[in-house]
Every structure is written in structure tokens, then in C-alpha cells.
């Protein structure tokens, strides 16, 4: 894959926590490219550094060495203001714990990134984004009045309203029951099919199997790749790497 095909490219990225003997290499010299218009899942045993990798890829975490490119933009050199601008325009986030603002309605939560970017959101824009996640009728509800699956879909709508280059998702189904998880995964699949680049961290083989490809991580290093595998194959491979510890 050439750099032009990649939505995000990590080259020799390391992230170390602590110092001296207590130092932990959460991400250890990782080179990986997440393709444009594709959905990549990052898997690994707990403590393998998959969340740190996602945070580094999204410019949320400083890297100690290496380079992170979002398209052609070097995130490792970006200043705080530039990163903020990128979060408003080219990067979207979805997290396990939804992280919606409790006092704002679903529509207000979705409109928030646009307002922070200094735009007065058009009502239709927000409505369409909420409709795209199947929540057109929940616009005036506050997060506490929504189920977990609905809250996560509002979070996806909030991430998508700026039409970002890449959607980063950290265990997006981790806090959901299986039927709510399926709805969220169907939604992500639908977005990926429409050309959205998605990077997702998950420990759930069912979720990872819905992605186009799976990257396996262990002890901060990329150890394996799988493409077009089903949930059984993903689970087997994950079990292999977990047993290898």
C-alpha cells in the first residue's frame, strides 16, 4: 500500500510510560498503515497497547519516537491548535463509554463539533446525521433518556457530523449488549461500505470480524494481519496470540 492509499500511517512509532526499570513500552516501534476507505480492527490481549496505539494514531497521545501521518499531515509535529482544528474537521472519535454531554440533547450533542468550529449548524444537517444512525425521532432526548446502544449511535453521529477523514473507535461495542452491538456494527459496516475510513480497537472477535482487516498487537508490537476472516478465525488467532504469552 502506498502512502496515498493510507488514511493514517504510523512509522516506527513508540510510546513509553514511566522511566528506568519501571518503563513500559506500550507501543514499541510500530509501523502500520490504515487504508483509506477501509475498516481496520486492532486486536490484542489486554495490556497489548492497542488503546495507546489508537490514541497515538489519533493525535491524542504524544509519541516518543516515530511519525504519525493523517493523510499527508504530520500529527507528531502538529501544535495544540492544529490538533484541535483537526479534531473539528478530519478526525472523529467514538468511545466505549459514549462520553456524551449529559445536559445537552442528542441534537445538541451532535451539533457541538460544528458549533465549536464556529459554524451555526443547519437544522437539516443535524437531523440528517441523526437519521443516518436511525435516531431521527430521538433528537430532543437527553443521553440519560436513551439506551446504551442509542447513546453510542448519537456518539457516532457526533463524530460523523463533520465528515471526518477517519473515524477512530475505541471498543465501541464494549458496553453494549449483543443486539445493541449488532446495530452499531451494522452502522459502521454501512459507513465503511460508503467509503468511510474506520480504525477500531476491540477485543470482541464478532466485532473485529465485521472489519475489512484485523491487525493483531502483542506487547506493543504488530504481530499478525488477517483479512476477510470470520469471527471464528479471528477468535482462534486471538487465542493463539494470547496463549503465546
Amino acid at each position: 500500500m502506498t502512502r496515498a492509499d493510507a488514511a493514517v500511517t504510523l512509522s516506527g512509532v513508540s510510546r513509553v510510560y514511566g522511566r528506568g526499570g519501571a518503563a513500559v513500552r506500550a507501543v514499541d516501534d510500530v509501523t502500520v498503515a490504515f487504508p483509506r476507505g477501509g475498516w481496520t480492527a486492532v486486536m490484542g490481549p489486554s495490556g497489548s497497547g492497542k488503546s495507546t496505539l489508537l490514541h497515538c494514531a489519533a493525535g491524542l497521545e504524544r509519541v516518543d519516537s516515530g511519525q504519525v501521518l493523517l493523510g499527508d499531515t504530520d500529527l507528531t509535529r502538529a501544535r495544540d491548535g492544529e490538533l484541535t482544528a483537526l479534531r473539528r474537521t478530519r478526525i472523529g472519535f467514538v468511545f466505549q463509554s459514549f462520553n456524551l454531554i449529559g445536559s445537552l440533547t442528542a441534537a445538541q450533542n451532535v451539533a457541538l463539533p460544528l458549533r465549536l468550529a464556529g459554524r451555526r449548524p443547519r437544522g437539516s444537517e443535524v437531523r440528517e446525521t441523526l437519521a443516518a444512525v436511525g435516531l431521527a425521532d430521538r433528537a430532543r432526548h437527553r443521553p440519560r433518556e436513551l439506551s446504551g446502544g442509542q447513546q453510542q449511535r448519537v456518539a457516532i453521529a457526533r463524530a460523523m457530523v463533520t465528515r471526518p477523514d477517519v473515524l477512530f473507535a475505541d471498543e465501541p461495542t464494549g458496553a453494549l449488549d449483543s443486539s445493541a452491538a449488532r446495530v452499531v456494527l451494522d452502522l459502521l459496516r454501512h459507513m465503511a461500505d460508503a467509503g468511510q475510513s474506520i480504525v477500531m480497537v476491540s477485543h470482541d472477535p464478532v466485532a473485529a470480524a465485521r472489519a475489512d482487516s484485523v491487525v493483531f498487537l502483542r506487547d506493543g508490537r504488530v504481530v499478525d494481519h488477517l483479512a476477510g476472516a470470520n469471527a471464528h478465525e479471528v477468535a482462534d488467532r486471538l487465542a493463539t496470540w494470547e496463549a503465546a504469552r
Binding site: L60, T84, R87, F93, N99, P113, L116, T162
Partner: peptide
């Protein structure tokens, strides 16, 4: 934490 969340969805320091 609330403020960090705002920063996460695109709020600048000035905001």
C-alpha cells in the same frame, strides 16, 4: 473531565 471531553470533540483552548 467535562472540559477534556469538550476538547476531545474539537474545542480549542481559547474556547
Amino acid at each position: 473531565r467535562d472540559l477534556a471531553l469538550l476538547r476531545l470533540v474539537g474545542a480549542g483552548r481559547g474556547q
